[in-house]
Write a protein that binds this DNA or RNA. Structure first.
Lengths: 339, 339
DNA sequence: ACGGTGTACCCAATCGATTGGGTAAGCTGT
DNA sequence: ACAGCTTACCCAATCGATTGGGTACACCGT
């Protein structure tokens, strides 16, 4: 009866009225664990309260709760773009871990644009998120020191930045793995499609590769390292540049699977067969890599786990702890493209 | 001075105290457009208020606002998985359109699991979103009628469902385009990797193809249609099934680019050259398609626009209007894989 | 001088939940 | 019989913004 158009949600007061007791009693009971009643009510009353709450499907209004408790249980996530599979998977990890500790996550895309990044941070803060996970940190110019000064709780994800807590893959190690692999396979003339120079992922993967390569006695003449976008088209363009140089390399390391796929396309256009005329190794071991017509060797990074760990770190920061950055171990998956 | 650890945000009351006026006056001024002051204050006072607000960076607490106005300006989005590039791009469209009308969006993954879908809906409603965009609707069992009964404002995206407003691509038309193309190229023995039978996208694309194919005089013996997962691995498995049958087809239509990529892999394993021995056509024209080693023909669907339109529809629903489903036009991009 | 009409504000309730501080009744021990 | 404790509650302020309904004063025309 009286079930009108605008069906309002049940409130604490509704429950209290129904039971003839005070809202505060209801609140206290619902916040205590099922057997104790935190001294708020008799066992019988507590049961009546819980039964009614379950029956009518009471769920507390999070806006009202936030207002009073000054915590929104909201977490802001900023990524370059969610259409980058790598970030999308990390976000799945975030969502899962956040849900597990009673938080909800908000994502937005900054398109790796510094102005947009600032704007998104402000939007998140205006929404009163409890903390931020920043997935688009730039090594050069950055908002991070300012955020710290403003005492905003945040952690970095995927990309690190000196002096700030982050959850990342050990990208330097990843680069080293590739150098060791290609060297062992006998390659001596190699090129790197290095990604964007403002991203620590790109810099570390390339750096790890270069250092290890030199340590093994390898050479990397000028033009061996080509910075590029992370996507397929960027990889293709970079590969074109590499192939138009004097002597083609016998192997290419692309710091991203999608760039690697673009490179494979360019190689084919030049009449070269991937895995035979030129090896290709990617990074992240996305679900695509193993299933490509020519399966792609790739450095596997625990993407979902990076997201989960980011939530764990942020949790620590929110509790006021001093947290240590997490750096997860990569592993190399060798496939036909470099076998 | 007194800038302590927990830097509380500026409130209306703070502004009012600073200016020696009443909070309600400040509220009214800040809600009127810059020249009128809605009769709430003198031009001079209004200016003082606005200047102070700008100076201290006042931003209203959205939780408090929601509590009072009973609208959260929050929008829930449920997708099968954000790591599906197609959904990720639609979400980018949603985010953009939502921001433009002052809404923030929440996404979660249901993994196309019906129980999980219900759970996510409840979580969204518990968060008091103003409306839902559902991107994982199943043709068979579904929560939709129940949501309607509960008067929850929602619209569908990507997948349609009879009787509910949706923003989709005209998938039937997309299937037809492929049938026409393959028929014109002289193919007579074709197979379809049809996707998941509970998704309208899969059903419509396949249906459009089949009907048009028959209309053109083509035949589709048993086993020509293989239902599958939407991802690369699903496509590979489906293609294996197709290729192990009596006679291999001369063309394969996969209702998803990733499934098409998997199929290309399977073809290569069987020693067939894509585009020569067997044509392949995908769907969605994701950024990868054009850049693959063998560029993939694909039906282009306006993914971001589908997301934007979904927000537009939902806006209508929230205003209580009767909205019409949107069905956007696809177009075929022919490339080497079927040329 | 007086009714009328603005103008420029202020007051207080309200949204829903939380929480520090009561209090009355009943029981226990001595 | 009474101090002291426990049990089982209730009261009211509070978080920050919004909004229907005042009120006090100035000015205008007649």
């Amino acid at each position: 009866m009286g079930n009108n158009t605008t069906e309002r949600a049940v409130t604490l007061k509704d429950l209290a009225r129904e039971l003839g007791i005070h809202p505060s009693t209801v609140s206290r009971v619902l916040h205590s664990d099922p057997d104790s009643a935190r001294g708020a009510a008799s066992a019988a009353t507590a049961r009546r309260i819980r039964e009614l709450a379950a029956e009518v499907g009471y769920s507390p209004d999070p806006q009202a709760t936030s207002l009073r408790t000054r915590r929104t249980q909201l977490l802001g996530v900023i990524v370059p773009r969610l259409s980058d599979l790598v970030l999308a998977i990390m976000y799945e990890g975030i969502e899962e871990a956040a849900a597990a500790i009673g938080y909800s996550a908000f994502v937005t895309n900054s398109h790796d644009d510094v102005a947009e990044q600032r704007r998104q941070v402000e939007i998140m803060l205006a929404r009163r998120v409890d903390g931020l996970i920043i997935g688009d940190s730039h090594l050069d110019v950055d908002v991070l020191p300012e955020l710290r000064d403003r005492a905003v709780p945040f952690v970095l994800m995927n990309r690190r930045h000196p002096g700030f807590p982050s959850s990342t893959c050990d990208d330097t190690r990843g680069g080293e793995l590739v150098a060791e692999h290609l060297w062992a396979k006998g390659h001596r003339r190699v090129s790197v499609i290095a990604g964007e120079p403002y991203a620590s992922t790109a810099v570390d993967r390339t750096g790890g590769f270069v250092d290890r390569w030199h340590a093994l006695g390898g050479e990397l003449p000028d033009g061996s390292i080509v910075w590029s976008r992370f996507d397929t088209q960027g990889g293709r363009e970079a590969a074109e540049k590499i192939l138009s140089a004097r002597s083609a390399p016998t192997a290419i390391f692309a710091v991203n699977d999608f760039a690697a796929i673009g490179a494979m396309g360019a190689l084919r256009s030049h009449g070269m067969i991937v895995g035979q005329d030129c090896a290709v190794v990617g990074y992240n071991d996305t679900s695509l890599a193993a299933e490509l017509p020519i399966p792609l060797s790739s450095v596997r990074s625990p993407m979902a786990e990076i997201g989960r760990q980011a939530v764990g770190l942020l949790e620590g920061v929110l509790r006021g702890e001093a947290v240590e950055s997490v750096r997860l171990e990569p592993s190399l998956q060798v496939r036909e493209s470099s076998a």
